[in-house]
């Protein structure tokens, strides 16, 4: 029966989602919400039962809080009838995932996510929403359009979602046994040291902070001496003695990301730039053409002569 637990949990969750999506009385939605929360709890239990490993309780609490917020906001996002609210709920999802990133020591990504996603992309969505909803909302100021109020075929969608969720959840709980164990400290240290060796200024600062008398970089050496580790922490063997390096000089998370980005994926970075540029071009082109067209339409609607005359088109044809 163990193997089926995740599936059953997903079934329950999906049913909860279905209850939230379908048109029905408020009570049923409340039931759905409760069922959903329960399911989340069950899943946490399943995880801790099935998967080996320790977790820091404080962090676990924070994780549970952020996760609950994220999932609740996400559910609310797809169930809310007003697109603007949906967008705002999405901002909430983004915020809580930023919190999760912080828990995973991905500070850079956490803030980048807030700045780029919540700050830029979502604002664009909001603009477009406002642009688009203008006309309809003028008519029915407090009624969202019909198509926003009701989910279409929630059953089929939820079934698809159920299968997917069941599959992935099962894989990410019972399937993790096939993974190698998490990194050990030595590996992390080696990686940190290796990166520090690549950063000459920081390395120099670290060494000189420990021993200001040293000549750095050492004379006559082709390369800087490697960082070594013992039980007390990192040190460098230079001029016949060991120089301890303070841990605060070890590369930060952000430095890791940056180094990884430019050292391992330079071409992808370029491509990403090109994609953004082209997207900008594309947006400009699409918008421009549309503007011309609609301008003419507006003029014709207003009883004026269009700028690009109809006669032109007839002559062309």
């Amino acid at each position: 029966m163990d193997g089926l637990d995740p599936y059953i949990a997903c079934l329950a969750g999906s049913f909860a989602l279905y209850l939230l999506l379908r048109r029905g009385p408020l009570v049923m939605k409340l039931v759905g919400a409760l069922l959903g929360l329960g399911t989340m709890g069950w899943l946490v239990v399943i995880c801790s039962e099935v998967v080996p490993g320790e977790v820091d309780p404080a962090r676990n609490v924070l994780f549970l809080v952020f996760a609950t917020i994220a999932i609740s906001a996400a559910v609310r996002m797809i169930t809310h009838s007003r697109p603007v609210y949906a967008a705002l709920y999405f901002v909430m999802v983004v915020m809580s995932s930023a919190g999760l990133f912080l828990l995973m020591e991905a500070e850079f990504m956490a803030f980048a996510l807030i700045i780029v996603y919540a700050g830029a992309i979502l604002i664009t969505y909001m603009f477009v929403l406002m642009l688009a909803q203008q006309a309809s909302e003028a008519e029915q100021i407090d009624e969202a359009p019909l198509y926003d109020r009701f989910a279409r075929e929630p059953g089929a969608a939820v079934i698809v979602g159920l299968i997917l969720a069941g599959t992935i959840v099962t894989a990410s709980t019972t399937g993790l046994g096939q993974l190698p164990p998490p990194v050990d400290a030595a590996t992390v240290n080696t990686a940190n040291g290796a990166l520090l060796e690549q950063l000459p200024n920081q390395y120099r600062d670290a060494v000189l902070a420990a021993d200001p008398d040293l000549v750095w970089p050492p004379e006559g050496a082709d390369s800087v001496p490697p960082i070594q580790w013992d039980a007390d922490g990192p040190y460098v063997h230079v001029e016949g003695r060991d120089v301890r390096i303070d841990e605060e000089f070890m590369p930060s998370n952000t430095q890791h990301v940056g180094w990884s980005l430019v050292a391992s994926f330079p071409a992808s970075l370029e491509v990403a730039g090109v994609i953004l540029l082209l997207a900008m071009f594309g947006a400009v082109v699409l918008a421009r053409r549309q503007a011309e067209h609609s301008e003419d339409e507006l003029r014709v609607d207003a009883g004026l002569k269009p700028v690009h005359t109809i006669e032109d088109e007839e002559g062309g044809a």
């Binding site: 075929e153 089929a156 698809v160 299968i163 997917l164 599959t167 992935i168």
Partner: peptide, 15 residues
């Protein structure tokens, strides 16, 4: 729906 369903079934099958 069709597409997602198909993709999901494939994933399920693989798992």
């Amino acid at each position: 729906v069709t597409m997602a369903g198909g993709a999901v079934l494939i994933v399920l099958m693989m798992v």
